[in-house]
């Protein structure tokens, strides 16, 4: 979304202002987030990247409503301090499928919790299993599925609810390299067709550039925004974009910023 000067901006989907948070670890107060400012427009794909332990997951927990900031404000669709649980989709590296439910019944979990009848929910989910690469596996239990399929089933569960904002916390981190590339391309297509707003946390610089409209780089702990990088690569993108000159120069910028943080941090290694 180009930022035209003078144009009246509607409220962004998500706005976070000077978010602070600290944890008490072993009796010691440890600041984790030190004033994070962040905005995500409707329909945007934004990535957050940063050194290990910079508080990325804490940030997502706050966005999802699982955790509250010590200070600062979070607004979803312009509303302040409302209940965000149930409005923001959240997906972790672990697929968190319920082992006692079949793929289909895992997918409809969110709808079921909203009070949709099982039959209706199943019907709705069945229309999507094809595009999630799960057709033929609807009645399988999760343990029988490969890692990539389980992750897609978890995606289906997240997307089926049609929540306003979807948070992805290293969703492909546990997959092998080849599956990860396939999943990234698949996610791009999915995002294109579903027009959802996504915030992705990743350790993978290539992944961040490939999928995002914007990349936020966080500093090492306590985390705050170090750099915001606009990714103006043409869409639709596929994996070949990775070798383009434009991509490489963006990657150099990102890696440079990250290296500064890791060096500052001393002991931490990157990636």
């Amino acid at each position: 979304m180009p930022d035209l000067p003078g144009m009246e901006h509607p409220e962004p989907k998500l706005r976070m202002q000077s978010i602070h948070k600290s944890f008490t670890v072993g009796g010691k107060r440890e600041p984790v987030l030190a004033g994070v400012d962040l905005a995500v427009e409707d329909g945007e794909f934004v990535s957050i990247i940063g050194p290990s332990g910079c508080g990325k997951s804490t940030l997502l927990n706050i966005i999802a409503g699982l955790d509250q900031p010590a200070s600062g404000s979070v607004s979803l669709d312009g509303g302040q301090d409302q209940q965000r649980l149930g409005r923001v989709g959240y997906m972790l590296q672990k697929d968190l499928l319920l082992p006692w439910r079949t793929v289909l019944d895992n997918a409809i979990l969110g709808l079921e919790l909203k009070g949709v009848s099982r039959r209706q929910a199943r019907k709705q989910a069945l229309q999507l299993t094809e595009s999630f690469g799960l057709s033929g596996f609807e009645d399988q239990y999760p343990f029988a599925l490969s890692g990539g399929m389980r992750q897609r089933a978890a995606f289906l569960r997240t997307m089926l609810l049609d929540q306003e904002l979807v948070l992805l916390d290293e969703p492909f981190g546990a997959l092998d390299a080849l599956t990860r590339i396939q999943m990234q391309e698949w996610l791009l297509n999915l995002w294109d067709s579903m027009k959802s707003t996504i915030v992705l946390i990743t350790h993978d610089v290539d992944e961040a550039i490939l999928v995002s409209d914007r990349v936020y780089v966080l500093t090492s702990r306590p985390g705050k925004v170090k750099m915001v990088l606009d990714v103006d690569l043409p869409r639709p993108r596929d994996f070949e974009a990775i070798t383009s000159l434009q991509f490489t120069s963006l990657k150099a910028k990102l890696l440079g910023a990250l290296r500064e943080e890791t060096v500052k941090n001393g002991a931490e290694t990157w990636p």
Partner: peptide, 13 residues
Amino acid sequence: MAVEGEHLDGDHQ
């Protein structure tokens, strides 16, 4: 749940 959550990065391994 909140404070003991300790969802610092890297513990999703």
